[in-house]
Simulated assay, not measured.
Amino acid sequence: MAIVADAWKLTADVALNAERNFSSDAQFEALASGRVDAVVTAMDNVMDWNQRAGPQDLRLVAQLESTTPLTLVGRTGCTWPEGLRGATILVDAPRNGFIVALRAMLAERGLGPDSYALEPVGGVKERFDALVAGRGDATLLGPPFDSIALQSGLSYIASVQERYPTFPGQGLVVSAEALPRLHPALSTWLEVLNRARKRMVSSPDAARQALVLAGFPVPVVDVMLKVIPRSLCPDRAGVELLIRHRREVELPGADTTYEELVNFSVLPQT
Protein backbone atom coordinates (compact mmCIF):
# COMPACT_ATOMS: atom_id res chain seq x y z
CA MET A 1 0.00 0.00 0.00
CA ALA A 2 1.36 3.41 -0.90
CA ILE A 3 0.16 6.68 0.56
CA VAL A 4 0.12 9.49 -1.97
CA ALA A 5 1.08 12.96 -0.70
CA ASP A 6 -0.36 15.12 -3.51
CA ALA A 7 -3.87 15.01 -2.07
CA TRP A 8 -2.59 16.49 1.18
CA LYS A 9 -1.60 19.83 -0.34
CA LEU A 10 -5.17 21.10 -0.21
CA THR A 11 -6.92 18.82 2.25
CA ALA A 12 -6.30 16.60 5.27
CA ASP A 13 -8.12 13.75 3.53
CA VAL A 14 -5.92 10.85 2.53
CA ALA A 15 -5.65 9.38 -0.95
CA LEU A 16 -4.54 5.75 -1.00
CA ASN A 17 -2.84 4.11 -3.93
CA ALA A 18 -3.24 0.35 -3.43
CA GLU A 19 -0.57 -1.64 -5.21
CA ARG A 20 0.39 -5.32 -5.04
CA ASN A 21 3.74 -5.54 -3.35
CA PHE A 22 6.30 -7.41 -5.44
CA SER A 23 9.09 -7.24 -2.82
CA SER A 24 10.32 -5.40 0.24
CA ASP A 25 13.17 -4.00 -1.88
CA ALA A 26 10.59 -2.35 -4.13
CA GLN A 27 8.95 -0.81 -1.07
CA PHE A 28 12.26 0.56 0.17
CA GLU A 29 13.12 2.00 -3.23
CA ALA A 30 9.74 3.76 -3.35
CA LEU A 31 10.36 5.30 0.07
CA ALA A 32 13.98 6.23 -0.62
CA SER A 33 13.13 7.87 -3.95
CA GLY A 34 10.28 9.88 -2.45
CA ARG A 35 7.72 8.27 -4.74
CA VAL A 36 5.69 7.31 -1.68
CA ASP A 37 5.63 8.69 1.84
CA ALA A 38 4.69 5.57 3.79
CA VAL A 39 4.44 1.82 3.33
CA VAL A 40 2.79 -1.05 5.17
CA THR A 41 5.42 -3.73 5.61
CA ALA A 42 7.00 -6.34 7.88
CA MET A 43 8.28 -4.41 10.88
CA ASP A 44 11.71 -6.07 10.82
CA ASN A 45 12.37 -4.32 7.50
CA VAL A 46 12.94 -1.02 9.29
CA MET A 47 16.08 -2.30 11.01
CA ASP A 48 17.63 -3.37 7.71
CA TRP A 49 16.42 -0.40 5.67
CA ASN A 50 18.01 2.04 8.11
CA GLN A 51 21.40 0.46 7.29
CA ARG A 52 21.05 1.20 3.56
CA ALA A 53 21.89 4.30 1.57
CA GLY A 54 18.70 6.34 1.89
CA PRO A 55 16.66 8.07 4.60
CA GLN A 56 18.17 6.05 7.52
CA ASP A 57 15.54 7.56 9.82
CA LEU A 58 12.61 5.26 9.08
CA ARG A 59 10.23 4.69 11.98
CA LEU A 60 7.30 2.48 12.89
CA VAL A 61 4.31 4.72 13.48
CA ALA A 62 1.51 2.12 13.75
CA GLN A 63 0.87 -1.62 13.84
CA LEU A 64 -1.97 -2.67 11.55
CA GLU A 65 -2.44 -6.32 12.52
CA SER A 66 -1.72 -8.27 15.68
CA THR A 67 0.39 -10.79 13.77
CA THR A 68 1.14 -11.89 10.23
CA PRO A 69 0.27 -15.61 9.98
CA LEU A 70 3.26 -17.41 8.45
CA THR A 71 3.48 -21.09 7.58
CA LEU A 72 6.66 -22.79 6.47
CA VAL A 73 5.64 -24.97 3.53
CA GLY A 74 7.94 -27.38 1.71
CA ARG A 75 8.26 -30.10 -0.83
CA THR A 76 6.24 -33.26 -0.28
CA GLY A 77 7.70 -35.38 2.49
CA CYS A 78 9.61 -32.61 4.26
CA THR A 79 7.75 -32.17 7.56
CA TRP A 80 10.45 -31.04 10.01
CA PRO A 81 12.72 -27.97 9.94
CA GLU A 82 15.75 -30.25 10.25
CA GLY A 83 14.81 -31.66 6.84
CA LEU A 84 15.82 -28.34 5.27
CA ARG A 85 19.53 -29.02 5.63
CA GLY A 86 20.95 -28.46 2.16
CA ALA A 87 17.64 -27.00 0.92
CA THR A 88 16.96 -23.93 -1.19
CA ILE A 89 14.55 -21.67 0.68
CA LEU A 90 12.63 -19.10 -1.36
CA VAL A 91 12.56 -15.65 0.26
CA ASP A 92 11.57 -12.06 -0.32
CA ALA A 93 14.98 -10.84 0.81
CA PRO A 94 17.77 -12.80 2.52
CA ARG A 95 18.47 -10.44 5.43
CA ASN A 96 15.23 -8.67 6.28
CA GLY A 97 11.55 -9.27 6.80
CA PHE A 98 9.89 -12.54 7.73
CA ILE A 99 12.96 -14.61 6.85
CA VAL A 100 14.72 -13.38 9.99
CA ALA A 101 12.24 -15.27 12.21
CA LEU A 102 12.76 -18.38 10.07
CA ARG A 103 16.53 -18.05 10.30
CA ALA A 104 16.20 -17.84 14.09
CA MET A 105 13.93 -20.90 14.13
CA LEU A 106 16.33 -22.92 11.99
CA ALA A 107 19.28 -21.86 14.15
CA GLU A 108 17.46 -23.27 17.18
CA ARG A 109 17.29 -26.60 15.32
CA GLY A 110 21.02 -26.55 14.62
CA LEU A 111 20.80 -25.20 11.07
CA GLY A 112 23.12 -22.23 10.64
CA PRO A 113 23.32 -20.00 7.57
CA ASP A 114 25.67 -22.43 5.82
CA SER A 115 23.13 -25.26 6.15
CA TYR A 116 20.79 -23.96 3.43
CA ALA A 117 20.60 -21.49 0.56
CA LEU A 118 18.30 -18.46 0.41
CA GLU A 119 16.91 -17.62 -3.03
CA PRO A 120 15.25 -14.17 -3.38
CA VAL A 121 12.15 -14.36 -5.57
CA GLY A 122 9.85 -11.61 -4.22
CA GLY A 123 6.58 -11.29 -2.35
CA VAL A 124 4.22 -13.98 -1.16
CA LYS A 125 2.58 -14.68 -4.54
CA GLU A 126 5.95 -14.81 -6.24
CA ARG A 127 7.22 -17.24 -3.59
CA PHE A 128 4.11 -19.39 -3.92
CA ASP A 129 4.42 -19.56 -7.71
CA ALA A 130 8.13 -20.39 -7.49
CA LEU A 131 7.59 -23.14 -4.92
CA VAL A 132 4.80 -24.76 -6.96
CA ALA A 133 7.03 -24.55 -10.04
CA GLY A 134 9.76 -26.47 -8.20
CA ARG A 135 12.29 -23.64 -8.06
CA GLY A 136 12.99 -24.27 -4.38
CA ASP A 137 12.41 -26.63 -1.49
CA ALA A 138 10.48 -24.47 0.98
CA THR A 139 9.17 -20.99 1.72
CA LEU A 140 7.11 -18.97 4.18
CA LEU A 141 3.54 -18.37 3.03
CA GLY A 142 0.58 -16.48 4.45
CA PRO A 143 -3.17 -16.76 3.75
CA PRO A 144 -4.57 -17.80 1.35
CA PHE A 145 -1.42 -19.14 -0.32
CA ASP A 146 -0.47 -21.37 2.60
CA SER A 147 -3.79 -23.23 2.45
CA ILE A 148 -3.67 -23.48 -1.33
CA ALA A 149 -0.15 -24.90 -1.18
CA LEU A 150 -1.12 -27.53 1.39
CA GLN A 151 -4.24 -28.48 -0.58
CA SER A 152 -2.05 -28.97 -3.65
CA GLY A 153 -0.02 -31.63 -1.84
CA LEU A 154 2.91 -29.66 -0.45
CA SER A 155 3.92 -30.29 3.17
CA TYR A 156 3.39 -28.33 6.36
CA ILE A 157 6.72 -27.89 8.17
CA ALA A 158 6.24 -25.29 10.91
CA SER A 159 4.37 -22.16 11.99
CA VAL A 160 6.12 -18.96 13.03
CA GLN A 161 3.24 -18.12 15.39
CA GLU A 162 3.39 -21.49 17.13
CA ARG A 163 7.08 -21.04 17.86
CA TYR A 164 6.92 -17.29 18.54
CA PRO A 165 3.46 -16.33 19.90
CA THR A 166 4.41 -12.64 20.19
CA PHE A 167 5.53 -12.36 16.54
CA PRO A 168 4.06 -9.03 15.41
CA GLY A 169 2.03 -8.08 12.36
CA GLN A 170 2.84 -5.51 9.72
CA GLY A 171 3.46 -1.87 10.54
CA LEU A 172 3.22 1.54 8.90
CA VAL A 173 6.68 2.93 8.16
CA VAL A 174 7.52 6.61 7.59
CA SER A 175 10.65 8.73 7.56
CA ALA A 176 11.05 10.73 10.78
CA GLU A 177 12.14 13.75 8.74
CA ALA A 178 8.86 13.67 6.79
CA LEU A 179 6.57 13.25 9.81
CA PRO A 180 5.92 16.97 10.49
CA ARG A 181 4.75 17.42 6.90
CA LEU A 182 2.69 14.23 6.89
CA HIS A 183 1.29 14.51 10.39
CA PRO A 184 -2.21 15.89 9.56
CA ALA A 185 -2.96 13.31 6.89
CA LEU A 186 -1.47 10.36 8.75
CA SER A 187 -3.34 11.27 11.91
CA THR A 188 -6.60 11.50 9.96
CA TRP A 189 -6.06 8.16 8.27
CA LEU A 190 -5.05 6.35 11.44
CA GLU A 191 -8.04 7.76 13.29
CA VAL A 192 -10.32 6.33 10.58
CA LEU A 193 -8.49 3.00 10.78
CA ASN A 194 -8.85 2.97 14.54
CA ARG A 195 -12.60 3.53 14.31
CA ALA A 196 -12.82 0.69 11.79
CA ARG A 197 -10.74 -1.51 14.11
CA LYS A 198 -13.13 -0.86 16.99
CA ARG A 199 -16.18 -1.62 14.84
CA MET A 200 -14.64 -4.88 13.63
CA VAL A 201 -14.08 -5.91 17.24
CA SER A 202 -17.55 -4.92 18.41
CA SER A 203 -19.45 -6.16 15.32
CA PRO A 204 -17.49 -9.05 13.79
CA ASP A 205 -20.50 -10.43 11.87
CA ALA A 206 -21.12 -7.09 10.18
CA ALA A 207 -17.40 -6.77 9.44
CA ARG A 208 -17.35 -10.25 7.93
CA GLN A 209 -20.32 -9.47 5.68
CA ALA A 210 -18.78 -6.18 4.52
CA LEU A 211 -15.44 -7.80 3.69
CA VAL A 212 -17.05 -10.67 1.79
CA LEU A 213 -19.20 -8.21 -0.18
CA ALA A 214 -16.02 -6.26 -0.96
CA GLY A 215 -14.67 -9.36 -2.69
CA PHE A 216 -12.35 -10.88 -0.10
CA PRO A 217 -12.35 -14.71 -0.05
CA VAL A 218 -13.93 -16.19 3.08
CA PRO A 219 -10.69 -17.84 4.31
CA VAL A 220 -8.89 -14.48 4.04
CA VAL A 221 -11.72 -12.73 5.89
CA ASP A 222 -11.46 -15.28 8.69
CA VAL A 223 -7.77 -14.49 9.10
CA MET A 224 -8.34 -10.73 8.91
CA LEU A 225 -10.80 -10.92 11.78
CA LYS A 226 -8.41 -13.01 13.86
CA VAL A 227 -5.51 -10.57 13.55
CA ILE A 228 -7.30 -7.33 14.47
CA PRO A 229 -4.82 -5.55 16.75
CA ARG A 230 -5.73 -4.53 20.30
CA SER A 231 -4.51 -1.06 19.36
CA LEU A 232 -2.55 0.62 16.59
CA CYS A 233 0.44 1.13 18.90
CA PRO A 234 3.38 -1.10 17.88
CA ASP A 235 3.55 -3.92 20.39
CA ARG A 236 6.67 -3.71 22.53
CA ALA A 237 7.01 -7.48 23.04
CA GLY A 238 6.69 -8.05 19.29
CA VAL A 239 9.22 -5.40 18.29
CA GLU A 240 11.69 -6.59 20.93
CA LEU A 241 11.29 -10.15 19.61
CA LEU A 242 12.30 -8.92 16.16
CA ILE A 243 15.35 -7.17 17.62
CA ARG A 244 16.31 -10.34 19.49
CA HIS A 245 15.96 -12.49 16.37
CA ARG A 246 18.13 -10.11 14.36
CA ARG A 247 20.75 -10.16 17.10
CA GLU A 248 20.68 -13.98 17.36
CA VAL A 249 21.35 -14.47 13.66
CA GLU A 250 23.95 -11.68 13.66
CA LEU A 251 22.30 -9.36 11.17
CA PRO A 252 23.04 -5.61 11.10
CA GLY A 253 20.53 -3.27 12.69
CA ALA A 254 20.09 -5.24 15.92
CA ASP A 255 21.83 -2.56 17.99
CA THR A 256 18.61 -0.60 18.44
CA THR A 257 15.73 -0.32 20.87
CA TYR A 258 11.95 -0.14 20.80
CA GLU A 259 12.14 3.57 21.65
CA GLU A 260 14.49 4.25 18.72
CA LEU A 261 12.33 2.38 16.21
CA VAL A 262 8.84 3.60 17.20
CA ASN A 263 7.35 7.08 16.84
CA PHE A 264 4.00 7.64 18.60
CA SER A 265 3.27 11.17 17.35
CA VAL A 266 0.54 10.32 14.81
CA LEU A 267 -1.24 7.57 16.76
CA PRO A 268 -4.87 8.15 17.83
CA GLN A 269 -5.23 9.04 21.50
CA THR A 270 -7.53 6.10 22.19
Rank of each mutant, 00 (worst) to 15 (best):
G54F: 11
P120V: 11
T71A: 14
T68M: 15
E240S: 08
L118Q: 13
P69E: 05
F22M: 12
L58P: 04
L190N: 09
L118T: 04
R230A: 15
E248R: 13
N21L: 15
L225I: 05
R109F: 07
A30W: 01
A237E: 15
Q269C: 02
E250N: 09
W8D: 03
W189H: 14
L84G: 04
G171V: 05
H245P: 06
G86M: 02
A32P: 00
T256H: 01
Q151T: 06
E259M: 11
Q63K: 01
D255L: 02
V4M: 09
L172D: 06
S175W: 08
E260T: 12
D222V: 08
L111K: 03
V223R: 08
S23K: 03
F216R: 06
A185Q: 11
Q151M: 07
R230I: 11
T166K: 09
P229Q: 12
E162M: 09
L232M: 13
A207Q: 08
K9S: 14
L60T: 00
D48T: 14
P55Y: 05
I228G: 04
E240L: 07
L241I: 02
L179M: 14
D205A: 15
A26V: 11
N194T: 10
T166M: 10
G215K: 07
S147I: 06
W80E: 13
E19W: 10
L211N: 05
V221G: 02
H183T: 14
I99H: 06
E250K: 10
F145M: 10
L190R: 08
R197N: 05
L64G: 05
M43E: 08
A104P: 03
L182Q: 04
G169E: 04
S23G: 12
E65C: 11
Y258R: 05
L102A: 09
R181S: 14
L190V: 12
L70V: 00
F264V: 10
V91F: 03
A196R: 10
E126R: 13
P143Y: 11
L186D: 02
A133Q: 10
H183S: 15
G253Q: 01
D129H: 00
A12C: 10
A130N: 00
Q209M: 13
N17E: 11
E82D: 12
P165V: 06
V266Y: 05
G97E: 07
I157G: 01
L111A: 07
L10H: 10
S33N: 09
P268K: 02
G253K: 03
F128G: 01
V121R: 10
A53E: 14
V192E: 12
T79P: 00
A130I: 05
C78Y: 05
R59Q: 08
W189F: 15
V266D: 03
R20K: 12
A62E: 01
G136K: 00
S147P: 00
